[in-house]
Amino acid sequence: MGPRRRQVRALSLLRYAAVLAGAVVMLFPFLWTVITSITPEGSLAGGPTLVVENPTLAAYRTLLDTLPMWRIVVNSLWVAIASTLLQLITGSMAAYGFARLPFRGKNVVFALYLATLMVPMQVLVVPLFIEMKALNLQDTYMALLAPSIASAFGVFLLRQAVESVPKELDEAATLDGAGHLRIFVTIIVPLIRPALATVAVFAFMGSWNSFLWPLVVIRSPEFMTLPLGLATLQGQFTTEWDVVMAGSVFSILPIAVVYLLAQRHIIAGVAHTGIK
């Protein structure tokens, strides 16, 4: 082996070591969270150890006595799934309208849709909170769902997808006597599945991670989602890290399972938005 090849080999080894070290930095905090949650509270003062002596589930018991954690997990999942489905339905229908139906003022309406995309949540938070109070929806699932029934981002992405479907397909179906609804359901929707997957990933993650809005509109534990429940927990157990980490394990596990099952689609969905 010549010196040049040896150099190349050393470089690729170095590169591999760096990626490996990086992966440890990314994954170890998750392991540390689990370790902390099963370490007896008394031995936390000096920091937990890799191998836990006398592991205990006491922190989980305290956690379940304090907050209805199972219900909070179900809330998070249900709100995320509901808002994802709603955004897929409302978004793909609007996409069809904008891409396939000729009507006056279409560009203006579309521009108005895009304008809502630019307004960040914090501008809306105060008036939306007042609106929910006025509608008597404060502290309900409806309040959690309201701002994410439709997303202009989804409409935008899906419209592009519908436009890339050849119009000849619709025309052939029209000759066969199909109306808009049948063309939409049997031709368009199946052909825009990759874009639907991308929108689904963003809708689900957006709802799952949402914090500011639930923080403002939800008070009772039975309507809390995981981020809000966790933040509340931390307010109560500031120094009891075993309990706080047990709560974190609760909120990491469901999303980790979803991630393991759909990893390819999730990463592909995120990558898809960047190319455009």
Partner: peptide, 16 residues
Amino acid sequence: AYFLPVVTSWVVVALV
């Protein structure tokens, strides 16, 4: 592995 934290919520990341 590098993508796992992306799907974790901000609140969890901040607490951990």
